[in-house]
Structure formats: structure tokens, C-alpha cells
């Protein structure tokens, strides 16, 4: 009899140990909760600011943050999600690489009961993220489009540099801009090409476009990194009279607007977005569940006329 009970006890013990491993290893009530901050790229100062601000706010709220860089690679992003879920992170503040490609990652976290709060970039599902805090790109680019028409005196040739074609922000910005500009027949878009939100790529793309269209009057860029690259290409070609318009509110572009090198940008508020995402995670830990699925954040037009009101990245003065 004695010998037949032993294996049974071992089996029970193994099942218990196994079950504790299979449930999740998220932090208990006494431990500091852990928050993963998964960001599309840290190769752009705007996203570095977003990630670091989120981490600082998470820390200020008493939790433990860790930043993961997806390097604009959805496969790497998936690895980060798998690691974060396996390592017992309690929430994910997420800046996706791809509106469609990142959906599976968000759903994986949801299945593991880990809340995801999207920052700045959207995923194409309402059944995944707990909440998505997104810049109102469309309205921001309507304001830019209006300013573009006014400063161009309703006529001229221009180039549009788009961001990543699989990112919703790219098209919301482009659509906002064109919802105004396309009503003016004397404003002619001679080229529209993606430079993937990247400064160097924008420089290369514009250099190539300038070969075919040396007589352009303006370049509208879907972000400030591309605006800086475009300005660099124009300066190298001796065309500093060509007007450049960006979007973000990055440090170098704010300086360039002040110096008259760049015409305007749409100021996003990554500080507000990042802090709000961390506050939402905190509220979630404290029991709140009824979050708005999408929370837009206003974008403000910055030109030479009002530049004194603004600091880079919408930092509070």
C-alpha cells in the first residue's frame, strides 16, 4: 500500500508545479507590477522621446518599465510580445509597427489577459487593444493643408513624401492634407512617393525626384524626419527657396522653422500620449475596465508666426 501512494503524490505535486507554470507568472499583489513599452523604432528621436516619457511616467506611478525596440520589424515586435508575456509583464504600452501586421500581437496579449494601450499608431481592430491613444493626424494635416494653400498662393508644383504605406497615420495625414489641397487646380502634385518616415530615405528619394522635376515649389512630408531629409536634399541642390512642410514637432524642425528653413509642422504631443497611456495602465491595475477604444489627441499647427509658443515634442514649458 505504502509504495502505491508515492507515485500518486509525485504526480499530484508535478501537476501543481506544472499548473503554476502554465498559468502566468505575472506579478503578485505585493510585487511591483511590470510594464513593457514596445516601440516601433528607436532610430527616430520622436519615438525615443515617446518611449522614455512613457517609462518615466510608469516609474513615477510606482511600476517597473522596460523598453523594447521593434526596429520597424513586425517579426521582432512579435518576439518582444512573446518575451513580455512569458516574463510576466502586467501591461504593454505599445507603439505598433504595422496597423494590420500588429493585430495578432495585440490579440495574443488580450488572450493572455494583459492589457495593451496603443500609443500614437493605430491597429486595425477594435477588438484587441484596451485603448488606443492617437494623434488627430487628419485634423492636423487639414490645418497644414490650409496653410500650404495660403503660403503657396494657391498655385505651384509640389512633391509629397509619404510615411510607411501600411501605417494608418501615413494615410490619415495624406488624406487630411489632400482634403484641402486637391480643391485647388493650380496646385499640381508632380510626385508622391514613400520615404518610410526616414530622414536618409527622404533625402535619397527627393534627390531622385529632383532629377525629373527640378522646378518644384514645395515638398509636403508626412513627418519631420522626412522634412529634415528633404531640406538637406534641397540645400545640396541649391534649392533652399523650395518650401518644406513637416509633421511631428521634432526638435530640429522646430529650430528650422525658427530659422526660416522649414515652413510649418503639425505639433504632436508625445508627452501627453505617453503619460496618458501610463495613467490608463495604472487605472487598469486599480480595477477600471471601461476605457474609450480610441482617444484622439489634438495636433496644433506651428509656423513662424506662433513658434514662440512651442517647445519640441510639445513639451510643457
Amino acid at each position: 500500500m505504502k509504495t502505491s501512494i508515492k507515485p500518486l503524490l509525485y504526480t499530484c505535486a508535478l501537476i501543481i508545479v506544472g499548473m503554476s507554470g502554465c498559468t502566468n507568472n505575472r506579478t503578485s499583489a505585493d510585487e511591483k507590477k511590470k510594464v513593457a513599452i514596445v516601440v516601433s523604432t528607436l532610430n527616430n528621436p520622436w519615438f525615443v522621446f515617446l518611449a522614455e516619457t512613457a517609462a518615466a511616467q510608469v516609474r513615477a506611478l510606482g511600476y517597473e518599465p522596460k523598453i523594447f525596440d521593434s526596429q520597424n520589424n513586425t517579426a521582432l515586435e512579435t518576439e518582444h510580445f512573446e518575451n513580455a508575456l512569458a516574463s510576466g509583464y502586467d501591461a504593454i504600452l505599445f507603439n505598433p509597427t504595422d496597423a494590420d501586421g500588429s493585430v495578432a500581437n495585440v490579440k495574443r496579449a488580450k488572450d493572455a489577459y494583459v492589457p495593451v494601450f496603443c500609443m500614437d499608431r493605430e491597429v486595425n481592430t477594435t477588438d484587441g487593444a484596451t485603448s488606443q491613444i492617437l494623434s488627430d493626424n487628419y485634423s492636423g494635416c487639414v490645418a497644414l493643408g490650409k496653410y500650404f494653400v495660403q503660403t503657396m498662393n494657391k498655385k505651384g508644383k509640389y512633391v509629397e513624401l509619404l510615411g510607411l504605406v501600411n501605417d494608418n497615420n501615413t494615410w490619415n495625414r495624406s488624406k487630411g492634407f489632400h482634403s484641402v489641397v486637391d480643391n485647388y487646380q493650380n496646385l499640381q502634385m508632380v510626385a508622391q512617393q514613400s520615404a518610410e518616415f526616414d530622414r536618409n530615405k527622404a533625402m535619397e528619394v527627393l534627390e531622385s525626384i529632383l532629377q525629373a522635376h527640378p522646378d518644384i515649389d514645395a515638398v509636403f512630408c508626412g513627418n519631420d524626419a522626412m522634412a529634415s531629409g528633404a531640406y538637406q536634399a534641397l540645400a545640396a541642390a541649391g534649392k533652399t527657396n523650395v518650401k518644406v512642410y513637416g509633421f511631428d514637432g521634432a526638435e530640429d524642425v522646430i529650430e528650422s522653422i525658427r530659422n526660416g528653413k522649414i515652413e510649418a509642422t503639425g505639433m504632436q504631443f508625445p508627452q501627453l500620449i505617453a503619460e496618458q497611456a501610463a495613467i490608463f495602465a495604472d487605472e487598469y491595475f486599480k480595477g477600471k475596465r471601461d476605457f474609450a477604444k480610441k482617444v484622439p489627441v489634438a495636433v496644433e499647427l506651428v509656423t513662424k508666426k506662433n513658434i514662440e509658443n512651442y517647445l519640441a515634442y510639445g513639451k510643457r514649458d
Binding site: D136, F269, P296, V297, A298, V299, E300
Partner: peptide, 8 residues
Amino acid sequence: NALAIGNI
């Protein structure tokens, strides 16, 4: 009224 959070 505003749907977006922020100053606008």
C-alpha cells in the same frame, strides 16, 4: 466640445 484631448 472636442473629441480629442489637448488644447484645441
